[in-house]
Amino acid sequence: EVTIKANLIFANGSTQTAEFKGTFEKATSEAYAYADTLKKDNGEYTVDVADKGYTLNIKFAG
């Protein structure tokens, strides 16, 4: 089991951190699915992958 950390960075400057656990593939998939649910209210997003994929910096356009 691994932990994927998602740093969520919103257009208004606020930030939030979420963690997803499971296999690497499952946790990564859940992180992207979570970002997709936030897209409606926060706009499109870009992802900067860090720490060999264990950290995702997800920035929303607003």
Results as ranks from 00 to 15, higher is better:
S14Y: 15
A11S: 10
A11T: 06
T55G: 03
N42K: 09
I4V: 08
F24V: 14
T17F: 07
A18H: 14
E1F: 09
K39E: 12
T37Q: 12
E25R: 04
D36T: 10
G22L: 01
A27S: 05
Y32L: 09
T46R: 06
T15I: 08
G43E: 06
D36L: 07
K40T: 13
K59C: 03
L56Q: 01
T37W: 11
A61Q: 15
F10H: 03
F20W: 05
A31H: 02
F20G: 00
D51E: 06
E1D: 12
G13C: 04
F10P: 01
A50E: 15
L38V: 13
Y32A: 03
F10R: 03
D51Y: 05
S29E: 12
D36W: 04
T15M: 09
A18M: 15
L56I: 07
A33F: 15
Y54F: 15
G53C: 03
E44F: 10
K39Q: 11
T15E: 07
K52E: 12
N7Q: 08
T17V: 10
A61Y: 07
I58Y: 09
L56H: 03
G53Q: 04
L56T: 01
N7K: 11
N42Y: 10
E44H: 14
G22N: 04
A35E: 00
T17W: 13
A33Y: 13
N42V: 05
E30K: 10
N12H: 03
A18D: 09
I4Q: 00
T46H: 06
F10T: 03
I4F: 02
L38K: 08
T23L: 12
L56M: 07
V47S: 05
N12R: 05
G13F: 14
N57M: 15
Y54H: 09
N57L: 04
N57K: 07
A6E: 02
S14K: 08
N7M: 11
E1I: 11
L8I: 15
V47T: 11
F60L: 01
A27K: 01
V47Y: 11
A27M: 03
T23C: 03
Q16S: 09
V47H: 04
E19C: 04
D51K: 04
T15N: 14
S14M: 12
L8S: 02
S29A: 14
K21W: 07
I58T: 01
I58M: 09
K59F: 08
K39C: 03
Y32N: 04
T28M: 12
K26W: 07
F24D: 02
G43R: 02
E25S: 08
F20H: 02
E44G: 09
F20K: 01
Y54W: 15
G22H: 02
K21E: 09
G53F: 03
V47G: 02
S29R: 08
V49G: 06
I9E: 05
Y45N: 01
G53Y: 02
D51Q: 06
V47M: 10
Y34F: 08
G22R: 01
T46D: 15
Q16E: 06
I58C: 03
F60H: 01
T55C: 03
D41E: 15
E19H: 13
N42F: 06
A50F: 10
I9L: 10
K52V: 09
V2G: 06
L56V: 07
D41M: 10
A35P: 01
F10A: 02
